[in-house]
């Protein structure tokens, strides 16, 4: 731990501001709470929102896991994990079951989460209506009035153009029957894991300066049409490393002759299954 920094990098006043915003976010599931986002020692888009939320939550006894696209060993994950090991001295892990706090980009771990775990998402664009309605004042009014017909215009366009709902990540959800919410760019494969999750889910958007939350056991519904219901991705393959047929698979190009393989995107899940199989 580097002694010249305050514990977990941010000063205590900033952490208090963040915690207040987080309490408000938990009190109003899915509502985007503005907060005073700070400059962080890495660029916007690398997870500044998630890092600030994590910094505000970390205690000395926490065990931190950081994943990027499901993997623990990618640049973003490694750097954020090392950052907190340096400025907070907390224990880190790659095991989902051992972690008390998991910061994630683009995935929810395959291993079911527990009540004593918190999942922190990095969010690039917290406003699900933004692509359809560029005016911030207008989207806020739409949220206030629960006027969400517009979101279905996007789904309608998907079906009209592709014959099915082609939105495959950042698939819009309705939280607790009230607020339309962006689940961050997780694949829609992970949307069912949001529904009534025992773990607290917190979302931080650093550039957009917004926080929101899905508290434990909250109803989360993915939008759809009556005759085009919500469906998750399916593969004809199984993971070629661990043989799982239930996890989210990445397609990996392995040579320059068109060879490719499908493997679990969740490295911890895949690795654990392989060790279990060997034992």
């Amino acid at each position: 731990m580097t002694p010249s920094y305050n514990f977990a990098f941010l000063d205590e006043d900033t952490k208090r501001m963040l915690r207040r915003a987080l309490l408000k976010a938990v009190a109003i599931p899915g509502y985007q709470v503005p907060f005073g986002s700070r400059e962080m020692p890495l660029p916007y888009g690398w997870g500044t929102g998630g890092i600030q939320v994590t910094a505000a939550l970390l205690g000395p006894d926490d065990v931190l896991k950081v994943i990027d696209q499901g993997a623990d060993d990618t640049t973003n994950a490694v750097n954020i994990r090392r950052f907190f090991a340096r400025v907070a001295g907390v224990a880190t892990t790659e095991r989902t079951v051992e972690a008390s706090l998991i910061q994630t980009r683009h995935r929810i771990p395959e291993t079911p989460l527990r009540e004593d775990q918190i999942l922190v998402f990095q969010v690039p664009e917290p406003e699900p209506l933004r692509t359809l309605e560029p005016r911030e004042a207008e989207t806020r009014t739409l949220h206030a009035l629960g006027d969400y017909g517009l979101m279905h215009v996007k789904l309608y366009e998907d079906i009209a153009q592709y014959g099915h709902i082609a939105t495959s990540y950042d698939y819009p959800v309705l939280v607790d029957g009230r607020f339309l919410t962006s689940p961050s760019p997780i694949p829609k494969f992970d949307n069912p894991k949001l529904d009534r999750s025992p773990a607290l889910m917190l979302f931080g958007a650093g550039r957009e300066k917004r926080l929101y939350a899905i508290p434990p056991y909250t109803r989360v519904e993915s939008l759809a049409f009556d005759d085009h219901p919500f469906e998750i991705q399916q593969w004809e393959h199984r993971c070629e490393l661990c043989g799982s047929g239930e996890s989210y698979l990445d397609e990996v190009v392995v040579d320059d002759r068109g060879g490719r393989m499908f493997v679990c995107s969740d490295t911890d899940y895949c690795g654990r299954r392989r060790t279990e199989a060997q034992a």
């Binding site: 359809l132 006027d147 017909g149 279905h152 215009v153 309608y156 366009e157 759809a224 049409f225 005759d227």
Partner: peptide, 21 residues
């Protein structure tokens, strides 16, 4: 930025029609 059909259907969707067909 959306198709003619979506333009016509938008007000219906705002009224809560959720059947694509």
């Amino acid at each position: 930025n959306v198709s003619a059909g979506a333009n016509v259907a938008e007000r219906l969707m705002a009224l809560g029609v959720r059947h694509y067909g």
